[in-house]
């Protein structure tokens, strides 16, 4: 019984950690610009696919990963500079459609460059599985959890102790006031998009040894990440992490104990219930609506 529960918990936490990283990407961009960036999932795909193709060129894994993440970061900046910045007076919903266009574009480009086949990435460590209390755990899961923890800690430090982090926070709270104290909004937005893209790529590389990677892997993971961010309350970093883990664990527990057919439905039902009782998500800020 316990072994079974542990097994579900392990896989739930692993997928949950990935959702959390994607959700953090959504949160960063949302905080800086109030845009929901539906292209966030594509950065996962770019991280995974670029690593695979760099590896095929004979570049060692750590360097390939670094270059792939760098590529995603640059694409994040380009997305902000070329697609979001020129449309700064647009409605939020228009901006969302722009990001949807961008995600279709990136997917189309990836399909041209990398084809439509599935690709595998080797595990980061040589041993594949660990046995814990009767359950089995991928060593890659430990990598995923470790990376996610380091990133969350790094973000905390970034927002608490660096000028840039504080500038992003200030912008998310009050754009006008931030501008008045000399924060360059465009610069803040660029950094936010770059960070979000980087986070996405990291998640994409970390999960690829478990789930494989292909040109359209970003659709579902992106959507789940968005859901996680919303459960946590859009714009809350803690919320994104909690939301991601909650979603991942809820999915595997449902598949394990209740119904595998309806595990995704249960996840979305969870959202509806949370939103009905806590209209701003678990950790959403309670700012008054602006008139």
């Amino acid at each position: 019984m316990l072994a079974e529960f542990l097994q579900y918990l392990f896989s739930g936490i692993t997928t949950g950690a990935i959702y959390a990283l994607v959700a953090l990407g959504f949160t960063l961009v949302y905080n800086a610009s109030h845009v929901i960036n539906f292209a966030q999932g594509e950065f996962l795909m770019i991280g995974g696919m670029a690593t695979v193709s760099l590896l095929a060129l004979g570049i060692p894994l750590p360097l390939a990963i670094f270059m792939a993440i760098l590529l995603a970061g640059i694409l994040g900046i380009l997305l902000q500079r070329l697609a979001i910045a020129p449309a700064k007076h647009a409605d939020v919903i228009t901006l969302i459609i722009i990001t949807i266009g961008a995600s279709i574009f990136l997917r189309g480009l990836a399909q041209l460059i990398w084809g439509k086949e599935l690709h595998a990435l080797p595990s980061f460590s040589s041993t594949e599985s660990l046995h814990v209390g009767g359950a089995v755990m991928y060593t890659q899961s430990l990598w995923v959890l470790g990376i996610a923890t380091v990133i969350v800690l790094a973000l905390v430090v970034f927002f608490k102790y660096t000028l840039m982090g504080k500038a992003i926070l200030a912008t998310s709270m009050n754009k006008r006031a931030a501008q008045l104290v000399g924060i360059r909004i465009q610069w803040v937005l660029m950094i936010a998009f770059m960070l979000a893209a980087t986070l996405g790529a990291v998640a994409g590389v970390a999960i690829a040894p478990i789930s494989f990677t292909t040109y359209d892997i970003g659709i579902m993971l992106g959507l789940k990440g968005f859901v996680a961010a919303a459960i946590g309350g859009l714009g809350s970093g803690v919320g994104a992490v909690v939301g991601g883990l909650l979603l991942g664990i809820a999915e595997t527990m449902t598949a394990g104990y209740i119904s595998s057919e309806y595990k995704d439905a249960v996840a979305f039902l969870l959202i509806l219930l949370i939103l009905f009782f806590m209209p701003r998500g678990l950790f959403g800020s309670r700012v008054a609506e602006r008139v």
């Binding site: 020129p86 007076h89 949807i100 997917r107 480009l109």
Partner: peptide, 20 residues
């Protein structure tokens, strides 16, 4: 053909950027 998806995304994006 192979560029179809890319073109679709590009046209959607550009239209919304220049005609928000």
């Amino acid at each position: 053909q192979d560029y179809e998806m890319m073109m679709f995304g590009l046209i959607l994006m550009l239209t919304m950027i220049f005609m928000p």
